[in-house]
């Protein structure tokens, strides 16, 4: 496999999945966000969002806290230091990849065999 594709294939899929990347990007831009905000921003269903959050929590990238606002339960989510590093590194790699792909040139057609 050519080098740039190897690099693409080696991206951390846990972070690279679009919905999880959106969640981590949101959390990297604030201290914490509640479940409703994440749901509205990502457009995911409750079940889907819960499942993505569980995966990120299992990977120790985020923390989840339950609390009550009056009588209503609220789920607050924040990024752990490990998660912040993971998402920052991921964006750096994507940026580097983008720069690399700009240097690509089409292979000249040497004629039919």
């Amino acid at each position: 496999m050519p080098e740039p594709f190897e690099e693409l294939a080696s991206l951390d899929r846990l972070v690279h999945e679009p919905a999880r990347l959106a969640i981590l990007t949101v959390l990297s831009a604030c201290e914490s966000a509640d479940f409703l905000f994440l749901q509205r921003l990502t457009g995911l269903t409750k079940g889907n969002l819960s499942s993505h959050l569980s995966r990120l929590e299992e990977a120790d990238l985020i923390w989840i806290r339950k609390e009550f606002s009056g009588k209503k339960p609220r789920t607050i989510v924040g990024l752990k230091e490990r998660g912040r590093k993971a998402v920052d590194q991921h964006w750096e790699r994507l940026e580097a990849l983008r720069e690399d792909t700009r240097k690509w040139r089409p292979v000249p057609n040497l004629g039919t065999p």
Binding site: L36, F37, L38, R40
Partner: peptide, 8 residues
């Protein structure tokens, strides 16, 4: 409507 965040 949109939830709450704690700003960085």
């Amino acid at each position: 409507a949109y939830g709450r965040i704690e700003a960085a």
